[in-house]
Amino acid sequence: MRTNTVGGRMFDIINYILLSVFAIVTVIPFIYVIAGSFATSTELASRAFFLIPKTFSLNAYQYIFSTDTLFKSGLVSVYVTVVGTVVNLLFTTTMAYALSRRHLIGRNTVLNLVVFSMVFGGGMIPTFLVVKGLGMLDSLWAMIIPGAINAFNLIIIKNFFQELPPSLLESASIDGCTDLGIFWRIVLPLSKPVLATFALFYAVGHWNDFFSALLYINDSAKWPLQVILQQFVMMSQGTIGDASSMDPTFVKPPDQSVKMAVIVVSSIPIMLVYPWLQKYFVKGVMVGAVKG
């Protein structure tokens, strides 16, 4: 274990305090959002900030859950998130591994093109026309394939692969492993923390994505959760002035709290993914794997 000096202990104490303070400061507004989602509209209007509502109200949730669409769209979101993340990891890690081998001919050209595509893009309409041309419109694949690889993630994963001890790969190839075998049996198992991290990044991206649904999905039965929830927010929002295209006599849902309930409903499921993935972040995973 590490040395336990006085200085070390002082450091520990300060560290614990600092981290606790930061954790509290970051999480309090979210508690406000949760509290707000259970508050009445009158209370939200009259109290600027609170962590416990005076009157407990389920109106916002009743409103949101009044439709079975929510459940259906939740399934769509889960499907897109799970399948999408698997596709992401598959596409990204394979490419990243190939690019991590420095001797590969053409590697630099491909890498240059990848970096180039990070800053230069064709834009919304040309991309739409490609997706349309591939016949993917109105298919859930349209929410998965066009974002199969994030260039940023690709480069970082490639970097992680590059950092693996070369001797390991060397010895494996001397043992008669093909590159496919090295990738599957050595590189991936050694990269669990990295894979977990990028699985999380990709999953959160899919879960929060509604723009590709807007562009590519016309069928309301395939709306993901975020689209449905945003509709709730739009409906609950008082519209202002002449800019409103909602009819003035339209019956609006009761509560400002709907906005907050929407955040709770949309974020809690995906937030639960991280604590579950944390077991892959334990130190020494790699060393264990190497020795095993």
Partner: peptide
Amino acid sequence: LLFPGALYFLVFKYVPMW
């Protein structure tokens, strides 16, 4: 291993580049 990714960049990043 490189192929699927390269194809992806070609189709979804470089074709729309016009």
